[in-house]
Design a protein around this nucleic acid. Sequence first.
RNA 1: UCCUCGGUAGCUCAAUGGUAGAGCAUUCGGCUGUUAACCGAAGGGUUGUAGGUUCGAGUCCUACCCGAGGAGCCA
Length: 440
Amino acid sequence: MSLENSYPRVTVAEAGRHNGETVEIAGWLYNLRRGGKICFPQLRDGTGIIQCVAVKSALPEDLFESLKNLTQESSLMIRGKIREESRAPGGYELDVEGADILQRVPEETPYPITPKDHGIDFLMDHRHLWLRSRRQNAAIRVRHEVIKGIRDYFDSHGFVLVDTPIFTPAACEGTSTLFEVDYFEDEKVYLTQSGQLYNEATSAAFGKTYCFGPTFRAEKSKTRRHLTEFWMVEPEMSYANLEDVKRVGEELVTFVVGRVSEHRREELKVLERDVTKLESIQAPFHRMSYDEAVVKLQAKGSEIVWGGDFGNTDETLLTEGLDRPVMVDRYPTAVKAFYFQPADDRPEVALGVDFIAPEGYGEIIGGGQRIHSLELLKQRLQEHNLPEEAFNWYLDLRRYGSVPHAGFGMGVERFVAWMCGLEHIRETIAFPRMLYRTRP
RNA sequence: UCCUCGGUAGCUCAAUGGUAGAGCAUUCGGCUGUUAACCGAAGGGUUGUAGGUUCGAGUCCUACCCGAGGAGCCA
């Protein structure tokens, strides 16, 4: 069957701009309501859904019958005139003049996802088809906008994209959460859990860099905020300190939120996201030290003591009643990774910062200033029982023109979940990988 | 890994220890403006698996499998 004909092909999203014109729309049958002599096929093409009208008296007998007997998600191209119509969902309707049915879904094997309710297990098993539904489509489009916004921000602020390896020979921060890859002959290799250490090398080569790719954590986490495989953007800046991280992180977040609320209004509407919640995310974000956070949490009844890390409930308590993220800085050195620069006046706290999103979405950014002293870094490696030999290249960065430098990581899926107001981050990626789910 | 909850028709769910049911989906019939269309009819079941208690188990007990929510850990 030829896909070429004399009708101009338009998408559903463009249909409103072709009011009164005869066009062709190619898509899949979303739903069908029928009467004896009239039927309403709703066509989905990935950009939207448009209702079509087929009237028996105006069409060849076989065409009307084949349209009337269409099954859900059958693929077809429909030709006809676009007309403004208040009764139609979407405001426009297409009067059918002709159609080519490419594949009719057989009734023996009907499309499994009906317009009625389904459970999450069933939907996740059919993720490859679930992506066709309106809400999933909207969430993935928001993800696209978030990624584009992130890249546009860094590209226009002097950062160079330098991607870091997925196969890495050593842990970045610890050894307990790594996936081992049994392939390379000479040494054990793991899937990356951060591009951090390599970013420190590339930022000394290019000034300011970022990497953007998948990361892997072999944690037995089973919550709505965790994926085994997730995407992270990690910028790194030479001649920069903790304050630069806070400033750039704040700019990045407000820029991307602005992009999403400006360009993805339709998708946010489908997701029933309260857009005013996004519009109130403006600089300056709230700022507090770890010390202050602990006092605040204790006042709210948390059992946290100075020196411990925050749990999920602590993070939610910290942003309770806030309309924008809170930046918590200067964590105890002991709970942070070995490479964090200690504060000059208080070596027991590290120059790190976490951005905690409101509405219970938790930590979306974590980062800080890195150690630039060769001696101190060597000492830290010893304290953490890390083999100096393996980090020799990393130590070189402190031997050859060492400067204060800083950076952070931002998790894409948590950010998207926050933008979309989703309960679970599994809907922010096309094919989520989780503890008990690796298919499809 | 631990705690809690769940698994019955293709899907979503009912069913005092006593004859396994409804809605949707599918098929057939009706309807020229439907909005998760509606009306009428039909087909559709090894109640997650294996044991046990009982005259009798979807229901009670034990083990296992699968999933969901949470904890810890993290982005």
